[in-house]
């Protein structure tokens, strides 16, 4: 018996669904991502320049900049503002380090009702976990190849 989901009728329907999909205004989305993402980087640059002007080394200032952005993101997520920024900015708010911090704070808040250990603490890494894992794996592989070959 031919399964309905593999029938020609189903395939025709799937094509029709594609045709009827509302077209997203890609240009507008891109512009908003550009503005939000650019602005977050601009805030970062401002913090960094300020710290360097107080005599901090460029590298240390860079780390403090990341920490500051993470703090701001945690605060805005806690206040319920970051998801509103993201609704507007899309990838613009996901790609900067603030998006990484948001991905830790949001589940921590949400799953606190399931307890401090398996709720809050365990769920913090739902999205950040894979980022850390693949970051470390790729860094080790690429870094090692680079170090051994060159």
């Amino acid at each position: 018996m031919l399964k309905e989901r593999e029938s020609p009728q189903a395939k025709r329907y799937a094509r029709l669904v594609e045709q009827e999909k509302p077209r997203v205004s890609l240009g507008f989305n891109i512009l908003r991502a550009f503005l939000v993402g650019g602005s977050i980087c601009l805030v970062g640059e401002t913090i960094k320049t300020y710290l360097i002007s107080y005599g901090m080394s460029v590298e240390t200032a860079g780390i403090w900049m990341s920490i500051s952005l993470i703090f701001l993101s945690a605060l805005l997520t806690g206040l319920g503002v970051y998801d509103e920024i993201a609704r507007f900015g899309g990838a613009g708010s996901a790609i900067p380090i603030t998006g990484f911090a948001n991905s830790i704070v949001a589940p921590a808040m949400e799953f606190r009702s399931e307890g401090a250990i398996l709720g809050l603490a365990a769920r913090m890494f739902v999205i950040a976990g894979p980022v850390i894992v693949y970051g470390l794996i790729s860094a080790t592989v690429f870094g090692l190849i680079r170090s051994v070959l060159l």
């Binding site: 999909k21 997203v24 997520t77 319920g80 970051y82 998801d83 920024i85 993201a86 998006g99 589940p107």
Partner: peptide, 12 residues
């Protein structure tokens, strides 16, 4: 996703 996570919803 958790409600405070910044995600943009799809039009559909």
């Amino acid at each position: 996703f958790p409600t405070e996570l910044g995600v943009q919803r799809k039009a559909t």
